[in-house]
Amino acid sequence: MTFINPKITPIYQSSVFKFEDLNELDAYFADTSSRYLYSRNGNPNSDELADAVNQLEGGAGAVATSSGMATIFAAILAYCQAGDHVLCAADIYGGSAALLNTELSRMGIAVTYVPFEQLYELAPLCRPTTRLLLAETMSNPLLRVADLGRLAAHCHALGLKLVVDNTFASPMLTRPLQLGADISLHSVTKYIAGHSDVTAGVTVAADAEVAARLKQIGVLYGLTLSPMESWLAVRGLKTLRLRMREHSHNALAVATMLAAHPAVREVYYPGLPTHAQHALAAEQGGGLFGGMLSCKLADDREVVSNFMRRTERFPFAPSLAGVDSSLSYPLGTSHRALTAEQQQDLGITTGLVRLSVGIEPVEELLADLRQALES
C-alpha cells in the first residue's frame, strides 16, 4: 500500500464533496466543522488560509473571502443592519468609501466620515444607532498612523466596535486585535500573498460568535475564495516575515533619498523621524514601518506623467505590496470616486504619487528613482 502524506496541503479543486449515506449527511449538519459539503460553505484550502492568518493575528476565528472589498463588506455586516450608522476614518482607501457610499447606503446603513484629527473625539458624531468605527492601521495613501490601543479604548467606552484594515501593516508589523480591536481585516491580495498573482481577503474576529457570523455572511453572500487562490496565498504567507523586513528596509532608504531630493515637495513615510506619528509607528510596528510611502511632486500632470514614463523599476500599476516595486496615482485610481473637495481636504492632489517599494536590490531602486526625477 502507498501512503500519501504531503508536507504541503494539496489543492482541493473540487466544488463538492461526497457522502457515503444519510448518516454521514446527518453527521455533517450536526457539526459542520467535521467535514466538507460544498466549497461555498468551506474548502480545505480556504480554511487553511483563514486559520493561518487567524493564528498570526491572535484571533478567535477568521474567514477567507474572494477579495479585500468582500472582507470589508463582511466585517461591516457582522455588526450592522438596516438603520444602523457607521463612523469611518476620512483618510481611508477609496474603495472602502465607495462601498459605504454607494452600496451599504442602499441597504440602509449610514456613514459619517471622521477627520484624522478627530478620531479620538468621536462622541459628538455618535448616534443611538452608531455601531462601529472603520479605520486603517496606516492610512491609504498618506500613511497616517492610528494609535490602535487608544482608539479601541475610546470606541469601547462609547459602546462602539473597532474594525481595522491592517493591510498596509500586515500582522508582521501590527496585530490590531492584541491592541483591543474587534476585527482585523486584510486584502490578502497585497502583502499576505505578496506576489501580485492573487485576489483575496481575510477577516479575523476577536470574538468566536462574531467569527461564526462572518462565516455565515461569507456562505450566504457567496464571498467564497477559490481553492487555487487560497493555495497561492498560503504559499505567499510563508515568506511574509522575510519579505516585510526587506520591504521596510528598502522603503526607508527610498523615503530618505526622496526627502532630500529637490524635485520632491514632501514624503509621507512613518519610518522618517519627521513623520508626525513616527514614535507611535515604531512602537506598534516593532521597529519596522512597511513598504508603502507617498510623495508629492509638482502639482502638474505632465511632471507626474513624465516621472511615470521615465521610471523603469516602478511601473504604474494601481495595486500594491508585491515583491516587485510599483507606483500608483491616488487621484486617478484608488480615490478617484471622491469629490474634488474631499480629495483636497485629504491632501490628495495632482502631484501625489504612491510608491509600493519591493524587495529588489535597494541600490537599483534608488538609481532608477534618481534618473526618473532628473527632468
Rank of each mutant, 00 (worst) to 15 (best):
I217D: 07
G218I: 07
G218R: 07
V219Y: 04
L220P: 10
L220G: 10
Y221Q: 15
Y221C: 12
Y221V: 12
G222V: 04
G222L: 02
G222N: 01
L223T: 08
L223Y: 04
T224R: 10
L225K: 02
S226H: 07
P227Y: 03
P227G: 03
P227Q: 03
M228D: 14
M228C: 13
M228V: 14
M228Q: 14
E229N: 12
E229V: 05
S230F: 03
S230K: 02
W231D: 04
L232S: 13
L232D: 11
L232K: 14
A233K: 08
V234E: 00
V234L: 09
R235V: 03
R235I: 01
R235M: 07
G236P: 02
G236Q: 00
G236R: 00
L237C: 04
L237K: 03
L237V: 08
L237I: 02
K238F: 00
K238W: 00
T239D: 12
T239I: 01
T239V: 05
T239Y: 09
T239N: 09
L240D: 10
L240H: 13
R241C: 11
R241K: 07
R241M: 05
L242C: 13
L242I: 11
R243N: 13
R243D: 14
R243Q: 11
R243K: 12
M244I: 09
M244P: 12
M244N: 13
M244L: 07
R245C: 01
R245S: 01
R245N: 04
R245L: 03
E246P: 00
E246N: 06
H247Q: 04
H247M: 02
H247T: 04
H247N: 03
S248P: 12
S248W: 01
S248E: 04
S248A: 03
S248T: 07
H249D: 09
H249I: 07
H249W: 11
N250K: 07
N250A: 10
N250E: 07
N250D: 06
N250T: 10
A251Y: 04
A251F: 01
L252P: 14
L252I: 04
A253Q: 14
A253N: 09
A253T: 12
A255Y: 02
T256S: 15
T256P: 02
T256M: 11
M257Y: 15
M257L: 15
M257K: 13
M257R: 13
M257F: 14
L258F: 04
L258V: 05
L258W: 06
L258H: 08
A259N: 11
A259S: 15
A259Y: 02
A259V: 05
A259D: 13
A260F: 05
A260I: 03
A260K: 13
A260N: 10
H261C: 10
H261W: 06
H261I: 07
P262F: 02
A263M: 12
A263T: 09
V264T: 06
V264H: 06
R265H: 09
R265M: 03
R265Q: 09
R265S: 04
R265P: 00
E266M: 10
E266L: 09
E266N: 14
